[in-house]
Design a protein around this nucleic acid. Structure first.
Length: 711
RNA sequence: AGCGGGGUGGGGUAGCCAGGAGAUCCCGACGGGCCCAUAACCCGUAGAUCAGUGGUUCGAAUCCACUCCCCGCUACCA
């Protein structure tokens, strides 16, 4: 009897392209798990789809002067393509605008209403007459009563952090059109989450096997008491509320989207030969439900969705595990659609193999803490690990076998190392299964890579290039064992690297689809005597330039050597000095610097320092500063200038390997993102590389503590 | 602000919940080997007061308390 596994993956919002954060956060881990389960006697049903309702989509549509339908059609199509190109093996990837979805959502809505889990309540909200719509919090801004900051959001002021209700703001503006909205009352339907508290508490009791972050976070929410939440909105783009008197409202997206898991399962059944098939997964106490999502989505899946399920029909399966990931970031910043900051899936797929990306995202997955996407690290890991260790092992084995035997060679007598190696294959299989069963994907990949490394070791120890001349039987045996490793690796890696695994599988003389096969059976079959084709390499090495889709932030800054030719006190400030500096070919200019506490005028006069020349000019206490000097300040508060030795004024300060392509005007915010630190040799380090002038490395002028920050 | 997560050799990480010999693995550095392979591979060496302070204990990276720093959620982007 096969065990039923349901895998639900968070629904991507159809308001923009996917970025690598989405893939690393949930689609890739879900897919690895699904592929692994299918190969290990599990009946997997994996579904998701585009989340296509809600205000942001209508706003995008207005901006582009088109319909919401057009927007979601475009991104849904793109999502489908991207999922397929990445090899995310959904059984169904649907959307929330299908007729089926609407029916299921409305049915659940009506049932919950009938059972009194949904009730009516009147609320006050801003209404923009000009836009003719109620404004969600994120589309309101006004003046904060606390600090008088003008662009406070509806829910909180970014400036002072004060939390408030939108009604507390003064001079409220609609973020869309700029007009002043008015307060109107509106009736909404609320989901009585508070009624599920007891049941949820009981349900959560035995979930100690969840990731500690997921478990603690959920428990904490529960202990603070659940608040009922509005599940309707005043808008037109969404699912109709199936209750009288709410004809002009729509069901709120978060209620709508999670129900997609059940709706999609039903849709998948309807497409199959048996429309009741979904019941095998949903009303079966042996079936396990896994939900893959990122950390911001945890309460929706561990509290709200279970509540909906319990309230609707308590024979339905609740989540078994929610292995939520943290975030994949880039340069320590969160990927963000709104800021347009991230690595976009459609672009990345044009340039790189899906398996290359899958490898890096897997080995660098944000399983327990945020991780970073780095182009440099991506290239290093691709070249050294995927190509060097893994690809090269497979290639050298195939090439040697092809050249010297032309077919898969036979196995004769085994020596100790042969036996150890064969045993290593089995041990790897057992360990890998253990890790993958627990959703430890990073560890699993390390385990598999470890076998590839052992393969290389074995190959070196055996020296088949010598054996072929002295002892053909032993050579044949060694290669047979190497190919057994290759065979096993193809199986072990297939959840992670499905495309290349399939290629290896075919190179070994199989015509089947590796992901349809049984794990244990496949690792032990080798087609001895199969005539080998001329081997081709599986992965390509990448060069740094190829990785540089996105420029390094450092490229944007123009650093130059400057000679201080005059120093004055700032008339209205006791910490500031006004420096006149000579920038050689760039001429002379005035800057303001806050270093009076650390350097006397005499000390600084005539010194060579380093200046950011393209920083947006700023008035500092009434004096315009046309640039900023670089200094290092350590944890003790000591500040040191940077010393470019006796380089010529105007000459560039640079870092090897980073292009010089400065912005015309560099925003201060952007400059702040460039994080430079002082190392133990008093050099300035940015991303592991040191800052140089034409005379060599730049040093601190005074001795500061290691780790001092340069700004 | 409240809550949660994290701070481990130059970079990135495992271990922590169930405390005990040399603190894991990958990259990088250095030295050696090999030449079948995509200048790939294999072996060895150096490098960490496990953020800080105090405590519990025969013994703490691991447990407790406090402090500092980073991140997230709360608050419609995975």
């Amino acid at each position: 009897m096969k065990e039923e596994i349901f895998i639900g993956v968070a629904w991507p919002y159809a308001n923009g392209s996917l970025h690598l954060g989405h893939i690393a956060g949930c689609y890739l881990p879900a897919d690895i798990f699904a592929r692994f389960c299918r190969m290990n006697n599990k009946n997997v049903l994996m579904v998701s789809g585009s989340d296509e309702h809600g205000t942001p989509i209508t706003i995008t549509a207005e901006k582009e002067k088109t319909t919401p339908k057009n927007i979601v059609d475009r991104y849904h199509q793109e999502h489908i393509e991207n999922m397929e190109q990445f090899g995310i093996s959904f059984d169904l990837f649907t959307r929330t605008t299908t007729e089926n979805h609407k029916e299921v959502v409305q049915e659940i809505f009506k049932t919950l209403h009938k059972k009194n889990y949904i009730y009516r309540k009147s609320v006050e909200a801003y209404f923009c007459k000009n836009c003719n719509r109620f404004l969600p919090d994120r589309y309101i801004e006004g003046t904060c009563q606390n600090c008088y900051h003008e662009n406070a959001r509806g829910d909180q002021c970014d400036e002072c952090g004060n939390i408030h209700d939108p009604q507390d703001l003064v001079e409220v503006k609609c973020k869309i059109c700029g007009n002043s909205p008015e307060i109107r009352t509106s009736d909404h339907l609320f989901l009585a989450l508070s009624k599920f508290e007891k049941k949820l508490k009981k349900w959560i009791e035995d979930k100690k096997y969840w990731k500690s972050s997921v478990f603690k976070f959920t428990k904490n929410w529960l202990n603070q008491g659940l608040h009922d939440r509005a599940i309707t909105r005043d808008m037109t783009w969404g699912i109709d509320v199936p209750i009288k008197g709410f004809e002009d409202k729509r069901i709120y997206v978060w209620f709508d989207a999670v129900i997609g898991y059940l709706a999609a399962s039903k849709e998948w059944s309807n497409n199959s030969d048996d429309s009741d098939k979904w019941i095998k997964w949903w009303k079966n106490n042996k079936s396990k439900h896994y939900y893959f999502l990122a950390k911001d989505n945890i309460p929706f899946h561990t509290l709200i969705w279970p509540s909906i399920l319990m309230g609707y029909d308590d024979s339905l399966n609740l989540p078994y595990d929610v292995p939520a990931n943290e975030y994949l970031k880039i340069k320590g910043e969160q990927f963000s659609k709104s800021k347009g900051f991230g690595v976009w899936v459609p672009e990345v797929l044009k340039k790189f193999d899906a398996d290359s990306i899958r490898y890096y995202l897997s080995i660098n997955m944000p399983e327990n803490k945020d991780s970073n996407w780095s182009w440099n690290d991506f290239i290093i890991k691709n070249n050294d690990e995927l190509v060097g260790t893994y690809g090269n092992f497979i290639h050298r084995v195939f090439t040697f076998s092809y050249k010297n035997f032309g077919k898969i060679p036979k196995r004769y007598n085994l020596d100790d190392l042969d036996k150890i190696t064969l045993d290593k294959i089995n041990k790897t299989s057992i360990e890998l299964k253990k890790s993958l069963n627990k959703c430890n994907f990073k560890k699993g990949l390390r385990i598999a890579m470890n076998l590839a490394q052992h393969g290389n070791y074995y190959f070196d120890q055996k020296q088949p290039w010598n054996l072929i001349k002295s002892d053909e039987e032993r050579c044949s045996t060694s290669l047979n064992i190497c190919l057994s490793i290759v065979n096993a690796l193809a199986v072990f890696m297939s959840p992670y690297l499905p495309f290349s695994s399939q290629k290896i599988w075919e190179m070994l003389g199989n015509t089947t689809n590796i992901s349809d096969l049984n794990w244990d059976e496949s690792i032990s079959t080798l087609n001895v005597n199969y005539t080998l084709e001329k081997p081709k390499t599986l992965f390509d090495k990448l060069s740094i330039e190829e990785g540089m889709i996105e420029e390094d932030l450092f490229s944007n800054v123009d650093l130059r050597v400057a000679k201080v030719i005059d120093v004055k006190d700032h008339p209205d400030a006791d910490k500031l000095l006004i420096l006149q500096i000579d920038l050689g070919e760039l001429g002379k200019r005035v800057i303001v610097a806050g270093i009076k506490k650390f350097y006397t005028k005499e000390e600084i006069l005539g010194k060579n320092i380093i200046i950011v020349t393209n920083l947006k000019p700023a008035k500092i206490r009434g004096v315009q500063s046309n640039g900023m000097l670089l200094a290092a300040s350590d944890s003790t508060g000591l500040v040191s200038l940077l010393n470019p030795d006796n380089s010529n004024p105007g000459s560039r300060i640079f870092i090897d390997g980073i292009k010089h392509n400065p912005d015309y005007i560099l925003e201060f915010e952007k400059f702040k993102e460039i994080k430079m630190k002082v190392n133990e040799k008093q050099q300035i380090v940015y991303k592991n590389k040191i800052l140089k002038s034409e005379k060599g490395p730049v040093f601190c002028d005074k001795n500061v503590k290691k780790g001092a920050i340069v700004s």
